[in-house]
Design a protein around this nucleic acid. Structure first.
Ligand SMILES: [Mn+2]
Ligand SMILES: [Mn+2]
Ligand SMILES: [Zn+2]
Ligand SMILES: [Zn+2]
Lengths: 128, 128
DNA sequence: AATTTATTACAACTTAGTTGCAATAACAAA
DNA sequence: TTTGTTATTGCAACTAAGTTGTAATAAATT
């Protein structure tokens, strides 16, 4: 089940993603709202926002969970699949609005793909 | 540092990958060798085999660590990067010997990519 | 056989996330 | 506005995967 009541934690988390174009890790959100909400609440609200097709989640190279805004998804399903990029320098993570073509894989039926790219972001290239 | 001494745990783990074409999770290996080696030993030996370019590792959709044989890698570096496939039915994981082309990403320098595909493997398609 | 030191087992720890449950607060109905 | 229903929350306890420190052990060299 998704969000039913517009509680303070829901509004605060939605607002946080409104003011942020990139992805945010669950851990970072727990830190940010440390004084206002319990970590369990943060995890549970994020989970519901994902159910509703408002946020999507993925794991980074360390297995840490990140969330980012969806685009054109709903409770019926997450449609906008795309790769994610993590800067090895600053650690920031972004959604990449590009298509990656997956070739036909023999002997298997592929339903979804998780793609995580690593490298250096523009801001970190400058500050060498 | 990689492997220096051919100990029993090193031989047992190497042997396990010899007899297995797919990937094996660290957790599964710890279970298999539960009566013979401590889990710390398993983790440390796997780590060294990866340093030596004999095995490579990656995380699955749950953030669990998997290992598989390398092909043409060495202590100087892991060269054979490729996608991995996890069957949503049986949970088996394989290395996919295919090239996935990553398009140029603007404003970022991409160094590496982790690609995890999910779907149904051949054996599981049959048993519907 | 003696020596050196890489490797191991063990226990304790860390980190990220989950679960059960009583107290609280949305929000609809009266 | 007050009341009643129940979704949501905070808290504490727990789980799972992996890491760390260290004394004992066992490869491999002399
Ligand atoms: Mn995204
Ligand atoms: Mn592989
Ligand atoms: Zn950066
Ligand atoms: Zn299968």
């Amino acid at each position: 089940m998704g969000i039913v009541r517009k509680t303070k934690s829901v509004e605060a988390l939605l607002n946080e993603f409104q003011n942020n174009s990139g992805a945010i890790s669950a851990i970072e959100l727990i830190k940010r709202f440390n004084s206002q909400f319990n970590k369990t609440t943060v995890y549970r609200v994020l989970d519901k926002l994902e159910d509703d097709g408002i946020l999507h989640s993925f794991l980074d190279i360390k297995g840490i969970k990140w969330y980012a805004k969806c685009n054109g998804c709903s409770a019926n399903g997450h449609l906008d699949t795309h790769p994610h990029f993590q800067c090895m320098d600053c650690g920031n993570v972004d959604c990449l609005p590009v298509e990656v073509h997956i070739p036909k894989i023999s002997n298997r039926e592929v339903f979804s793909s998780q793609i995580l790219l690593q490298g250096i972001c523009n801001r970190c290239i400058g500050s060498s």
